[in-house]
Simulated scan of single mutants.
Amino acid sequence: MTHANGPTDQPALTVTSHDTQPHARVLSVTGDIDLHQLGPLEHALAEALRKSPPLRLLVLDLTAVGFCDSSGLNVLLKARQETEAHDIELRLVSPGVVIRRLLQVTGTAALFSLYDDLAQALA
């Protein structure tokens, strides 16, 4: 399933969802995560939390994300809070330099499990 949204002057944010195991889902995010393009990511995260049977692992593959602003960080923090409340492990894959810097500057890097590639995150 793919969700897309965004103004025409920048690439649309898309989120592709696929289950890798009965209790694991990968959300592959492509584009920029900013205030104007949060909808697809928020929708995909909400849908993942409603999954039946319930998830045990949710992986956000950020390999193709070029930019993330503070509103995107807030979505990631909310996802962490909600997954924790539902006893779901949240893992971030390949957060680029911009996202890593955002996590470091805000002191939130330690809140997330970061992985270099999808295979590691699913192991």
Rank of each mutant, 00 (worst) to 15 (best):
V29G: 03
P7I: 05
T30K: 12
M1S: 14
A85F: 04
T30I: 06
T106L: 09
V65C: 12
T30R: 14
A110H: 08
Q21E: 14
H3M: 05
L27D: 03
I88D: 03
H23S: 13
K78I: 00
G31T: 09
G96A: 11
N5I: 01
L77C: 07
R56Q: 15
I33Q: 04
D69T: 11
A79W: 01
F67L: 07
R50I: 02
G107R: 10
T20W: 02
E47R: 06
I33W: 04
L73V: 00
D87L: 02
N5M: 09
K78E: 02
A123H: 15
H3C: 00
L122Y: 10
A44R: 03
H18F: 13
R56D: 13
S28R: 12
L13F: 02
T108V: 09
A123N: 15
R25E: 07
V29D: 03
R56H: 15
R100T: 11
V59R: 04
V65Y: 07
A46P: 02
V97D: 11
D69M: 11
L62F: 09
L118T: 12
A46F: 01
A4F: 08
V75L: 00
R25W: 03
H23G: 01
T16A: 14
F67G: 02
A44E: 01
R100W: 02
L13G: 02
D32N: 09
N74F: 00
T30M: 07
T16L: 07
A121C: 13
H43K: 11
R50Y: 08
S70Q: 10
R101L: 05
H18L: 11
L102Y: 05
D32E: 15
L103G: 11
Y115Q: 10
D61A: 08
Q120L: 14
R101V: 06
L103R: 06
H23Y: 07
L58M: 13
G66D: 13
V29Y: 05
A85L: 11
G31Q: 08
L73E: 01
P22H: 07
R80T: 01
Q81M: 08
T14K: 06
I33M: 10
L57V: 11
R56W: 10
Q104H: 12
S94A: 15
E82W: 09
N5G: 10
C68A: 13
L122F: 11
P54Q: 13
N74M: 00
A123T: 14
A79C: 13
K51C: 15
L38E: 00
D117H: 14
L57D: 01
S52T: 14
L92Q: 07
R100M: 08
D87R: 09
S70T: 07
N5R: 07
A48Y: 07
Q104V: 12
L76N: 04
I33L: 08
L114F: 10
R101G: 06
I33V: 15
D34S: 05
P7C: 08
L118P: 12
F67R: 03
I88L: 04
T2A: 09
G96F: 08
H36Q: 15
D19Q: 14
V29M: 09
V26W: 06
H86E: 15
G6A: 13
A121Q: 10
T30P: 00
L57W: 03
E84F: 03
Q104N: 15
V75P: 00
L41P: 00
E82H: 13
H18E: 13
G107S: 06
I88V: 15
D61M: 05
